[in-house]
Computed example of a mutant assay.
Amino acid sequence: MRLVLDPPAIIGLGEAFEKVCEVFEVYIPRAVFHGLAEVRYCRVGSHELRKLVEIR
Rank of each mutant, 00 (worst) to 15 (best):
R30H: 14
E22H: 13
G12Y: 06
V4G: 00
V4D: 00
A16G: 05
E15Q: 13
E25G: 04
G45D: 05
H47G: 07
L13W: 02
M1G: 13
I55L: 12
V26I: 08
R40K: 11
Y41S: 08
R50C: 04
V44C: 06
V39P: 08
P29N: 02
M1E: 08
S46E: 06
A16F: 04
E15A: 15
R43P: 02
C21S: 11
P8E: 07
Y27Q: 01
L52F: 10
P7N: 09
G35M: 06
L3F: 11
V26H: 02
V39A: 12
G35K: 03
D6I: 08
V53A: 14
R56T: 10
G12F: 07
V26W: 03
I55S: 13
E18P: 07
A9Y: 06
A37S: 09
K19P: 00
V32W: 14
A31Y: 15
G35S: 12
E38H: 15
M1P: 07
A31V: 15
S46K: 00
L5H: 03
R56K: 10
V39R: 03
L36T: 01
K19N: 04
A16M: 06
E38N: 14
A16H: 06
E18Y: 09
E22T: 13
A37F: 12
E15I: 08
P7A: 15
R2I: 12
H47F: 14
L5S: 01
G14I: 05
V32N: 02
H47A: 11
D6Y: 14
L49A: 03
E54A: 13
D6F: 14
C42L: 10
H47M: 06
C42P: 02
E22Y: 05
A37T: 03
V53H: 13
I55V: 13
I28C: 02
E38W: 15
I55G: 05
L5V: 04
L13Q: 01
G14D: 07
H34R: 11
K51V: 09
F24N: 10
R56A: 15
V53M: 09
A37Q: 02
L36V: 02
R30T: 15
C42I: 10
P7Q: 06
E22D: 14
L49I: 01
F24T: 05
R2M: 12
K19Y: 01
K51F: 13
L36A: 02
F17A: 07
V39W: 14
L3D: 07
A9H: 12
I55C: 09
L13K: 05
E54M: 09
L52R: 06
R43W: 11
